[in-house]
Design a protein around this nucleic acid. Structure first.
Lengths: 259, 259
DNA sequence: CGCCATGTTGATTTCTATCAAATTGAGTGG
DNA sequence: CCACTCAATTTGATAGAAATCAACATGGCG
């Protein structure tokens, strides 16, 4: 088992991750307050920082763990803190008054919550797996952004990338069939994991449940389940614990109109 | 080009809706290279500039008009110029290889094309009405952003607002019914026109065609037509030339889950 | 006046949602 | 270790909302 750092990371996180989590990034524990060993630094907001700026960030950050199902932020909350995800997966979600939900996206290691720098959240963030985050007070980041234009530029780049993804997703929601939605989603998850761990594997971890996938793709849980199982019957993929294994890349790339 | 007449106050949306062009901003042509008379300056990217900075902007901008159906930028183009819209309406659109389209949004006066500052466009922009734009070379804006952090901050604010709208739209596309989509769209357009002309009118100009509305809402043209006409039969609205008139605000606000 | 794009309306189909039930499987406690 | 429980998932039957297919109407414009 990985050594847990001295700052009291809950035992449950490590235990759970070792046992049931399929993906290494759900298991790695990183000292969010020691940038030198931060494994997501090259991916995240901090990638733009020079080593001599790490101390600045460390002073304004805290490592904050969350358990599965914890709510990191609620869409009704004021935004007092920002989060950089160092381990685990969360869903970004909007709730309608009548109980309908739309999952805006999934936050993976390296992702930053609060790119808009605004005073209010516009979505809730709920932990899907045990998580570790690097937390920043909003005022500290606002100050940093004022002082370091290249940091603001990095924020803007990441927000722009996010906007681009949102537009991809609008095409998916508005114009793709259920089969195309699922196929595109699986390729998207493979690409995102590959960016994190540097490998392109046929195995695509899916830490989120079927209901989350449905609410992300604008489908029902039954349609998600049926479609994935049809793909398995057609030998395009194999369902494995906590994910799927892509068996027929050509099929998925043909299915995904944007590729 | 029409000369701007400072003494003449623009006609309201309501006035114009009864006649030909539904909105004054579709007809008025503004000297984009004279910031003193720019009618969209308080709305757009330039709102953050001090009067002594107007000269800087004027030096790097050109007024460029477009005719109806012109393509301002193509999704395959490199991004050499940015545009601030001073008059007219455009659609932001993505095309799938098989001809399906998703309209990402409509660009109205005050909107800026190129908020991401990236080197490539991710959508096409097509003029729905005759347009006037203020065009900037990309390198000039990049330089400006480097020199003036408050300009970058303004870009970031506007991009964040855009991201927020994109997320609203994901909820709409993923989880609303056809009736809710149409109702939400009409309220959105009313709100956006109100921001531009300062009036809240029951008349909502719709310079875009039914097909554009359909491709924006993830519906077919037939469903859009049917739904709007059902709303008219139910006396919730009246279809007028180039738009609609909302007759039953309570109905629409009840229909739109986010309000 | 007639043409062509745009919009409307009607009939029918289809995809996905809904409703309902069975199955799996991880966690719990005897 | 195994029965039990509860949530998540899968599967089946049916319904329904919107798409599709097909005319038909409108209206701006040469």
């Amino acid at each position: 088992m990985l050594k847990v750092n001295e700052t009291k990371t809950p035992q449950t996180v490590a235990d759970h991750a070792q046992i049931v989590r399929p993906h290494p990034h759900c298991a790695h524990h990183i000292k969010g307050d020691d940038c030198r060993v931060c494994q997501v630094r090259p991916l995240g907001i901090c990638a733009v920082l020079e080593p001599d700026e790490w101390a600045t960030i460390e002073q304004i950050s805290q490592t904050v763990p969350f358990a599965e199902r914890d709510t990191l932020v609620s869409e009704t909350d004021d935004c007092t803190h920002f989060y950089s995800i160092t381990a685990g997966v969360a869903r970004l979600i909007r709730h309608l008054p009548d109980g309908r939900r739309q999952v805006m996206g999934f936050a993976l290691p390296g992702d930053f919550l609060g790119l808009s720098l605004g005073k209010a959240w516009s979505f809730s963030v709920e932990a899907i797996t045990p998580m570790t985050t690097c937390r920043f007070a909003r005022h500290a980041i606002v100050q940093l952004v004022d002082q370091k234009p290249h940091f603001l530029m990095r924020m803007h780049e990441m927000a722009s990338a996010e906007l681009n993804l949102a537009q991809d997703h609008m095409v998916l929601l508005g114009r793709l069939t259920a089969e195309e939605k699922i196929g595109t989603f699986l390729l998207e998850m493979r690409r995102r994991w590959a960016r994190i761990d540097g490998h392109t594997s046929q195995n695509v971890p899916l830490p989120m449940g079927r209901q989350d996938i449905a609410d992300y793709l604008g489908l029902t849980i039954e349609t998600v389940s049926r479609t994935i199982n049809q793909m398995q019957r057609a030998r395009h993929l194999v369902i494995v614990p906590d994910g799927i294994r892509l068996m027929d890349a050509a099929y998925f790339e043909h299915l995904s109109p944007s590729v």
